[in-house]
Every structure is written in structure tokens, then in C-alpha cells.
């Protein structure tokens, strides 16, 4: 079932355009000039119920803008979005009840109060039936390991604990859709792993659709089967992660130690990157020389140690946006 649809979505911002200096400031006071900046440029996508989609792109690509349009905070300039049949900006309040939103750089819990107080407020705000509230609270307390944290003021929690508590808070009303904007930002490795695990569990338990933006490709690789890649407001790629890696990635590097003196010739199609005899590093790409072929050729040179590394998604993305 298709749950989220964006069609020809466009978002333009009007920013004041002003000449520098005092004269410019005075002129802007009387004749304000604006120029349009296109943050989202005719984007189309549709997302099925239960998918976890990674929405990625460099800073300023338009990720947050899209999420804001999906949650009804921003109105599109043109095109349309529907979330579960609702138009978010027209039906903001009803849409709010069916989505959970987490902005990673911003805790939505009351800083000075125990976590449970913020949850109590959500219970009233989203009008959660008592049975569901209790059930969800128990469930999230268990999987998010919140037991001791519930009665502690938010300001005393670590960053990771805070994020867990925030995500749980956003899920209390059992939303069908969850928007996560940088949920692992600033977290240490262990906390990141935990958060990923939780997102997976939530998705599996109730088929919650998740749209996730992150700068950590580890998040994307471990959670998402599908990514949508945007840059300067335009959609660049939309499809399975694996296919993306195969199309745009495929670089590998092989390090080895040669037994004999310097090999007379290195395999064709590979580039010699480091030459510290007897240690060498060569790189290649799947599309020219398959990794397995490259290894068998190198093996024939007479080697002692061999180590190979595939390009990570992070590296592919970095290279892609160069």
C-alpha cells in the first residue's frame, strides 16, 4: 500500500536581496527586493507502508525542507504531497496524529522535568486511550531500556539516553509513520547501534513506515533497503541501496606483501597507489576488473599477506557529491 506520495513537489524560498553597505540597507527598507531560491525542485517519490527509507544528501540539499512539508510545517510552492491520504498542510492537526517526528538536534522533552511528565503531556495532547498508552509505555520502557530514566529530569540524561527517550515519546501515540531527522547526530558508537536496533524493532513490530535522514551512512546501510538521494533540491537517485552501490561504487583496494623482489608487472586495469616495497596497495573498480579476478592475478605474483577493502557507502556518496 502506497502511504506517502510526493508529486512534482517544489519549494521556493524568498530571500531578501540587498546591496551591501548602509545604502543598500536604506534602499532595502523602501524597495525590498526578493529573489527566489529553489530548495526543492520537482521531486517525485512514493513510499510504501512499512518501508524504511533513507533520505540523504549533503547539507542544504533540502532534506529537512521535505520532512517539514511532509509534517505540515511548510506549505509547498507547487506540486502535492499526501501522507496516508491526508494533505499535511491542509490537515495539519489530523496529520500530526498519524505521524511521529523527531528532530535530532532538538529534544522535545521538558528539560527540567522527569521524562515521564513529558510523556503525560503527550498522552493528553494526542488523546491516547489509557490502554494503548500503558501498553506503549511498557513496551518502549522495555525495548528502549528506560526503566530508571523515566523519573529523572531530562537535563541529567546523556545524549543517547535523551534520544531514546525522545523517540519513545514520539511513538507513544502509535503513529503509522515516523520521521527521523538526524536521530544519531552527536551520539557515540554504542548509542548509535542501540538507536538503530530500536528503529528496526519498531518497524518490525507494527509495520511503522520510517523516513530517516542521516549523515551517518552506517545508519542508512544497517536500516534502509532503499535510499532517496537529493542534491540542490533535485532527486538524484531513488532505489535499493545495493543497486546504488553497484552503479556508483565498486571501487576496491587490495593491500599485499610480495614474497620476492619487486613484481615485474602489476595486473592490467589496476592502479598502484602505494609503493613501499615489499608492501603495495592497488585499487580498481568492479566495472573494469572484477575483484575476484584481481585477487587471482595478484596471487600469481607470489604474495604473503593480502587484505582487500570494498568502498563503503559513505565513500561512494562522498565521491558522488565530490
Amino acid at each position: 500500500m502506497v502511504q506517502i506520495i510526493a508529486e512534482n513537489l517544489v519549494k521556493e524560498y524568498q530571500v531578501p536581496d540587498r546591496d551591501p553597505g548602509l545604502r543598500g540597507a536604506v534602499k532595502a527598507l523602501f524597495h525590498p527586493r526578493y529573489r527566489g531560491i529553489t530548495a526543492i525542485d520537482h521531486i517525485n517519490f512514493s513510499i510504501e507502508k512499512g518501508e524504511i527509507v533513507g533520505y540523504i544528501g549533503p547539507n542544504g540539499a533540502g532534506k529537512s525542507t521535505t520532512l517539514k512539508m511532509l509534517s505540515g510545517i511548510l506549505y509547498p510552492t507547487a506540486g502535492s504531497v499526501t501522507v496516508n491520504g491526508l494533505v499535511p498542510y491542509r490537515d495539519r492537526k489530523r496529520n500530526a496524529r498519524q505521524i511521529g517526528v523527531v528532530f535530532g538536534n532538538r529534544s522535545q522533552l521538558y528539560w527540567d522535568l522527569p521524562v515521564i511528565d513529558s510523556y503525560q503531556l503527550n498522552r493528553r495532547l494526542y488523546d491516547i486511550p489509557d490502554a494503548i498508552y500503558r501498553e506503549n509505555l511498557a513496551y518502549f520502557t522495555e525495548i528502549f531500556d528506560l526503566g530508571d530514566l523515566l523519573n529523572q529530569p531530562v537535563r541529567l540524561l546523556s545524549l543517547g539516553q535523551k534520544m531514546r527517550a525522545t523517540i519513545a515519546g514520539a511513538m507513544l501515540h502509535s503513529p503509522e509513520i515516523l520521521f527521523l531527522d538526524e536521530p544519531t547526530i552527536g551520539l557515540d558508537v554504542t548509542s548509535k547501534l542501540k538507536i538503530r536496533d530500536f528503529i528496526r524493532q519498531i518497524n518490525q513490530k507494527s509495520g511503522t513506515t520510517v523516513i530517516l535522514t542521516s549523515h551517518d551512512m552506517g545508519d542508512i546501510e544497517s536500516l534502509c533497503e532503499r535510499i532517496i538521494l537529493i542534491d540542490e533540491g533535485k532527486k538524484k537517485y531513488d532505489g535499493p541501496v545495493l543497486e546504488f552501490e553497484n552503479t556508483f561504487g565498486g571501487n576496491y583496494s587490495i593491500s599485499f606483501k610480495a614474497v620476492s623482489a619487486r613484481p615485474s608487472q602489476f595486473p592490467e586495469g589496476l592502479t598502484l597507489r602505494e609503493d613501499n616495497a615489499p608492501y603495495y596497495v592497488v585499487t580498481g573498480n568492479e566495472k573494469q576488473v572484477r575483484l575476484s579476478d584481481a585477487i587471482s592475478v595478484i596471487n600469481q605474483l607470489g604474495i604473503e599477506e593480502l587484505e582487500m577493502k570494498n568502498q563503503t557507502l559513505e565513500e561512494i556518496i562522498n565521491e558522488y557529491f565530490g
Binding site: 517539514k68 505540515g72 510545517i73 495539519r92 489530523r94 517526528v101 538536534n105 532538538r106
Partner: peptide, 13 residues
């Protein structure tokens, strides 16, 4: 500035 206002717009109220 901090984004708290945007977050508050995701509330059903």
C-alpha cells in the same frame, strides 16, 4: 532559531 517552533508545529493543536 533553535527549531523548537517547527517541532511545536508537529503537535495536533
Amino acid at each position: 532559531r533553535s527549531g523548537a517552533f517547527d517541532a511545536s508545529l508537529t503537535k495536533p493543536m
